[in-house]
Design a protein around this nucleic acid. Sequence first.
RNA 1: GGAGGGCUCGCAUAGUGGCCUAGUGCGGCGGUCUUGAAAACCGCUAUGUCGGGUGACCGGCAUCGUGGGUUCGAAUCCCACGCCCUCCGCCA
Length: 422
Amino acid sequence: MIDLRLIREDPDTVRASQRARGESAEAVDTLRAADESRRSVVLRFEQLRSEQKSLGKRIPKATGPEREQLMARTKELAAEVKRAESAVAEAETTLQQAQLAIPNVVQPDVPPGGEDDYVVLREVGEKPELEKVRDHLELGEGLRAIDMERGAKVSGARFYFLTGIGAQLQLALLTMAADQAIDHGFTLMTTPSVVRPEIMAGTGFLGSHAPEVYKLEADDLYLVGTSEVALAGYHSDEIIDLSKGPVRYAGWSSCYRREAGSYGKDTRGIIIRVHQFDKLEMFSYARPEEAAAEHDRLVAWEEEMLSKVELPYRVIDTAAGDLGSSAARKYDCEAWLPSQNRWLELTSTSNCTTFQARRLNIRYRDENGKPQTAATLNGTLATTRWIVAILENHQQPDGSVRVPKALQSYLGGREVLTPVAG
RNA sequence: GGAGGGCUCGCAUAGUGGCCUAGUGCGGCGGUCUUGAAAACCGCUAUGUCGGGUGACCGGCAUCGUGGGUUCGAAUCCCACGCCCUCCGCCA
């Protein structure tokens, strides 16, 4: 939810942001008008209410004709106050709708444009030179690590089993990520997979993302698509202490996504779109002035993980039109995918500035002890999808897969995963 | 699924129509006293929003789980809902 002060004091910045995203700049004026009309009806209500209260207080002491007169006047006022009050309620609804229609203000240096207008910030590592490229599914099936067929049999398309070494590999990866996060001062959390509507709405996923979200209709609850939702909700309606720097959580959870409208896309294996996967997510609460620096730290920690698993990757600065509604800036790390000769998103880190926290009412106290809205940030440290890149980049001609050094101790010292015969 | 209890300014509690401008205790902050500390005593101690000066200030209004209703007037009475807890039942 956008800051109304910004709309009042610097609407041009918001208009520019809307244009960069490819969205309506007029929405800014709609919001300004709603803000002003709300203020005027609030003023009227408060004046009437004030008169009603002060006259009402005189009634118990008044007698005779004075009392009659007061009663008559306050009775009138009661009706007027009621009308004014409903005008306020109406104006507030209008205001809120206009406010929710505007996504977060993008940071000034975010590239404008859509999905393909990202800027590559850096490319790290060497793409492997492979004579014969097997894709991750062929490799995974050879290792008896991935079972798509039975996933579909049991749960439908886009579900899978990780079996044996596949399950072990995921556990190793997530555990390594958790250890790294803990080393950097994060508090490890396992989080609820199911959340209340106000939490899901507060994190911004019920806007344009709504069709992506699983809803448990009978219970009016939602399945989370990332532990970001639960970790953002964790401190909702609280005033937290940020005086000693950002508060950091690492959430370990399964993630659920409907992937509506993506039928027929990326259907092979566990590449891009599956309904369920596991993730280790970083989440930071920070003072707004330190959010950009924290964002840089999050991306650095993602790169640390990528280098530990020895993957060639690049970092892109996502264009304005491809940002989620809560994000003011987003960096993605994409690993090389040999089987498709392209880059595959493995991590995504967003600076949501105060947008998400305003809606969830998450605040901190500034130097003067005054409550201020906090900034929130999130970033991926490892997911099931990383297995795809690891298998493909570290494959060997015989179908075996080299285990990156840092990961070996998490796999009982194994240096290579070898195909199972038969 | 059934039954019961609860929801008040950080925590704990008081408050059954106007004396509530929501009291008290704890905790926290500041001060007095003290060589220092403790104790004691004194003071302060929510959030949002609107308006005015637009500097750390002044005033109004709202908020006692949420939304309605009754009333000149609601923390208090009525209705609906939400959430938390306990017990019983059922259960991977």
